[in-house]
Design a protein around this nucleic acid. Sequence first.
DNA 1: TAACTGTATTATTTATGTTAGTACAATTAG
DNA 2: CTAATTGTACTAACATAAATAATACAGTTA
Lengths: 129, 129
Amino acid sequence: MFELDLRSRAPVYEQLVEKIKELIINNVLKPDQQLPAVRVLASELTINPNTIQKAYRELEHRGYIYSVPGKGSFVKPAVPGTNDARLQALENELGKIISEMLYLGVPPQEIITMLKKLLAKKEGGKLDD
Amino acid sequence: MFELDLRSRAPVYEQLVEKIKELIINNVLKPDQQLPAVRVLASELTINPNTIQKAYRELEHRGYIYSVPGKGSFVKPAVPGTNDARLQALENELGKIISEMLYLGVPPQEIITMLKKLLAKKEGGKLDD
DNA sequence: TAACTGTATTATTTATGTTAGTACAATTAG
DNA sequence: CTAATTGTACTAACATAAATAATACAGTTA
């Protein structure tokens, strides 16, 4: 289900957080869908269960999943307009990316075109619903 | 010249890299402008010179500055169209941000508006040249 | 009851970040 | 030339974080 790069300098649990978050955001993992059990995923990836739990704990803390003892861990349904702080952070990140693109010599019009192209692709892929 | 958050979980040298990179990208630090000497900046920030050097080494490796033994470290002038790899990485980051905004319920039109607003602001600030 | 789930705890090992101190070669100001 | 600056390299020590290992416990489910 997941692929890891053990050679990477990024911590394994952090890679896991990013990967799973990405799957949730892209609707590959659907709302309320159950995630692999801590021990199961640890066995599949041949890493320690504690590392998985650390990733799950972080994902729960960031609001992407919820866990129920005895039942399992599940994708937390997103509620629009409930995460202004995260949205503000994203706008800030967007600003940095734009600055660097301008710095690299990309014309503003080309940046807009790039955004629209990406939006079309992502919106097109939303036909999975 | 720089401000650090020693309480942060992010490594000091990494914070330095990000801060300086941002100053370069936003043209606060001009091309070929000299950066503070390793020992000087270390003294100002009351941290170890080795930590500064690690940050400078990383910045040089990423192509944002160049260092000359005996002279100093300087802002490397950007040459447009010379960094396709970095541009590809930025487009990838942009894609992730868009995905998360859509996931949070932001309408596509609103994302475009947000981008244009940010572009206007950054382009306006470019009058420093 | 038995087999699953998440969670918690302690200990150990390994990797990374940071400081400290020293040294050397290139450059520049006097 | 000399002295003071620059970047760079190196070793050692310490602190923190990441990852593994081995149990253990409570809630859930078949």
